[in-house]
Design a protein around this nucleic acid. Structure first.
Lengths: 208, 208, 208, 208
DNA sequence: TATGAATGAGGCTTCATTCAT
DNA sequence: GATGAATGAAGCCTCATTCAT
C-alpha cells in the first residue's frame, strides 16, 4: 500500500511537474515563437532549473510536440474548434461570442500554431485530426440536419462549416494585425458576435 | 551621357541585386520563419555569398523590415487587402476568387506576417496603415453606399467590412492547417468563392 | 551549515573560475592587444571552452573592463603607482628598483593600458582615479613635507611628483622599445635604480 | 624629354598618392589602433577607393610597416627622438619644451608605436636603429663632453641619456593617462619644461 | 590606374543539451 | 530527482583582399 501510494504520489508529482513545465513552455512559445524561446526562460518561468526540463522532456522540440499534440493546449486555443455541443450551436451568437473571446485571448497561440504547422506539416495533420475535424464534423452534422429540415438553404455544408470556422479564425487574425489599439480589440465582443452571427445566419437562412 | 548611363546602370544593378536578395529572403523566411532562417540559406538561395547580403542590408532583421515595409510583398500577399477597384467589389465572387487564390498561394507569408507582427507590434501598425486600413476603407465605402441605396441591410459596415476580410483570411488559415491534402486545398477555388460569396452576400442582403 | 558551506564552496569556485579566465585574458590581451586577442585563445589559455567565458563575463569587452577596473591588475601593473608607504619613499633607490622591476616585468600591460585608454577615455579616468592619483598624492605629500623641512628645494611638487612617475613609466617604455636585447633590459635593475635615483634626488636636493 | 617628364610626373603623382594614403593610415591607425582600423576608413580618409590602396600597398599590414619604417612618421612623432643639434641640447628647457609639445600632440602615435612594437619586435629594432639610437647617441656624446669638461658629474651617460628620453616619454604617457582634463594637459608646456629641465639639470650638475 | 562590388574566412556570441554533484 | 556549470555547434556579421569594368 505504502509503495503503491508512493508510486501514485510520484506519478502525480511527475504529471504535475510536466504540466508546470508545459504551461511555462506555452507561455514562452506563444510570446516568443518556438525558435526564439530559450530553455532558460522556460525553466525560469516554470520555476525549475534548466536541467530539470530534460528529466521530463527529451528536447525543446519535444516540448512543442507535447504542447501541440497534448492536453496542454486543450484548455485554451484548442477549445476554439473543440466540439461544441449541438445545443451550443443552436445559439450562434453565443457560440461565436465564446469562440471569439477565447480566440482573442489566445491569438498568440493561433499564430504559434500556424507558424509551426508551416514548418512541420505533421502538426497540421495532428491538429486537423484531433481538433479541427471533429469540430467541423459536428458543425456539418448540425448544418446537414437543418438543411434537411428546411431551415437552411441547401448549401454545401462542407464549405459552410469551414466558412463559419474561417470567420472566427479570420477575426482573430485581423484582431492580431490591428493590435490592442485597433478596432476589433475595442469593440464589445458580444456586439461583434451578434453582428457576425447575423451576417452568417441570415445569409444561411432560406429566403422568404 | 556615358557616365550618366553608367550611373543608371549601376543603380539598376544595385536595385536588381537588392530585389534578388529580398526575393530569396522572402522565400526562406516564409518557409522557415524569421528566426530559423539562416543568412547562409538566404545567400545560397539568392545565389550570392553571405557577405554580399551585408553590402545591401544592414542586418538580417533589416531584411525582414524591408520585406514587410517594402515593395517586395506588394506583389504577393499585400495584394490580399490592397485596394480593389470599386468595380471589382461589385462582383463579390470574382473578388473573393482572386483574393483566395492569392492567399492560398501565399499563405506562408500570411503566417510569417502574423508571427512577426506578434513579436514586433510596429509591423502591425505599419501593415495596418499601409495595407489593411486602405482595403477596409474601400470596402466600407462600398458597403455604406449599398446600405444607403437600400440594396443592403443597415449593418455596421465597420464590422461587416472586417467580416469579409476575416472570411478570406480565415479561409487561408484553415487551408494552411488542413495542408495540401486537405479539403480546401482540393476544392475548386472558383466554386469555393461562389459558395462563400453566396453566404456573405445573401446574408448581407435585405430580407424580403 | 551544509548548504552554507555549499554556497560558500560554489561562490569560491565561481570566483576562482572568474580569476582563471581573467588571468588568461590578461595574458592574451597583453600579448596581442585587445582587438587581436580572440576569445578562442583566451578560452584555450584558461583551459575552458569558449562558451564558458560567457557564463562569467557578458562579452569580450567586459573582460577588458573587469581587467582594467578590477582586482586582476592589482597584483601586477597597478602596483606600479599604488601607494607605497611613506617609509618606502624614503629610500628612493629601493622604491625605484621595486617599481622598475615591476614595470619591466609588466611592460606589456602598460602598453595595453595606454592603448585602451586611448580608445576609451573612461579607462583613463578610472585608472587615474583609482591608481595614478592616489600614488601621486602620496608622493606629493611626501615631497611637500621635505620642501617644508628644507631638505628639498621649493619645487612645484605637483610637477615633481609627476616627473618621478614619468621617469619610471618612461624607462619602461624605452625598455619596451629597445626590446629584450636592448640596453635597459640587460642593465642590472639595482644599478639602474641607483643611477636614476641619484639623478632625481640630487636634482631635487638643495644646493649647498 | 616629354616622356621623361611624364615619367617624372607619374612618379611624382605616385609618390604623392602614397603619401596621401599613408597620411590617412597614420590618422586612422593612431586613432583606432592597427587592428581596429579598417581599410574602408583609411580609403575614405584618403579620399580614394578601397581598391586603390592596394595599387600602392600590398596589404593593410604593409601600410603599417611603411608607416613605422618610412618617412611618414618622420614629421611628427619620430622627431621626438630625432637628432637634435648639439646646439639645441645646450638649452635643455627649450629642447624639452619642443619635445614635450610634439609628444603631447602625437601621444596617440607613441601609443600606436608601443603597441605595435610589442606585437612585432622587429618594429622595435627598426625604430631603435633608425630613430632612438641616433638620438641617444647624440645625447650621450653631448653628455660625455660635459662630463669631460667638468660641467657634469661623472654619471653613466648611457643611463643618463636614457633617463632624459624616458622623462619625456613618461610625461607623454602620464599626459595620455590623465586625459585632456588632467593636470599635465592644462599646465603650460613652457613652465613644465622649465621645471623638468631644472630637476634634470641641477640633478646632473656637479655639487659645489 | 581607379573603382567598388563580391567574396569568404574568421570572430564573437547564443543556447540546447549533458553530466557530475 | 534536481541542479546549473560546462560544452561546442552554429549563427550573424565584419572586413581585408580580389578582380572585372
Amino acid at each position: 500500500m505504502v509503495s503503491t501510494n508512493n508510486h501514485k504520489g510520484k506519478e502525480a508529482i511527475t504529471k504535475q511537474r510536466k504540466r508546470q513545465i508545459l504551461n511555462a513552455a506555452r507561455d514562452v512559445f506563444s510570446r516568443k515563437g518556438f525558435a526564439e524561446a530559450t530553455t532558460a526562460e522556460i525553466a525560469q518561468t516554470a520555476g525549475v532549473s534548466e536541467g530539470t526540463i530534460y528529466n521530463y522532456f527529451a528536447s525543446k522540440r519535444d516540448l512543442l510536440v507535447s504542447l501541440i499534440g497534448g492536453y496542454a493546449l486543450d484548455e485554451s486555443l484548442l477549445n476554439l474548434f473543440k466540439s461544441p455541443t449541438i445545443n451550443a450551436i443552436d445559439s450562434l451568437p453565443a457560440l461565436l461570442e465564446d469562440r471569439i473571446d477565447i480566440g482573442f485571448e489566445n491569438s498568440d497561440l493561433l499564430t504559434l500554431l500556424l507558424a509551426e504547422i508551416q514548418r512541420t506539416p505533421e502538426f497540421g495533420e495532428q491538429y486537423s485530426g484531433q481538433v479541427l475535424n471533429p469540430g467541423l464534423a459536428l458543425l456539418k452534422t448540425y448544418l446537414d440536419m437543418r438543411v434537411k429540415n428546411g431551415t437552411l438553404r441547401p448549401v454545401d455544408t462542407e464549405v459552410a462549416s469551414r466558412a463559419v470556422v474561417a470567420m472566427v479564425v479570420g477575426l482573430i487574425a485581423v484582431h492580431q494585425i490591428e493590435g490592442k489599439d485597433g478596432f476589433l480589440a475595442n469593440y464589445p465582443v458580444k456586439d461583434l458576435a451578434d453582428e457576425v452571427a447575423n451576417i452568417l445566419s441570415v445569409g444561411l437562412g432560406t429566403k422568404k
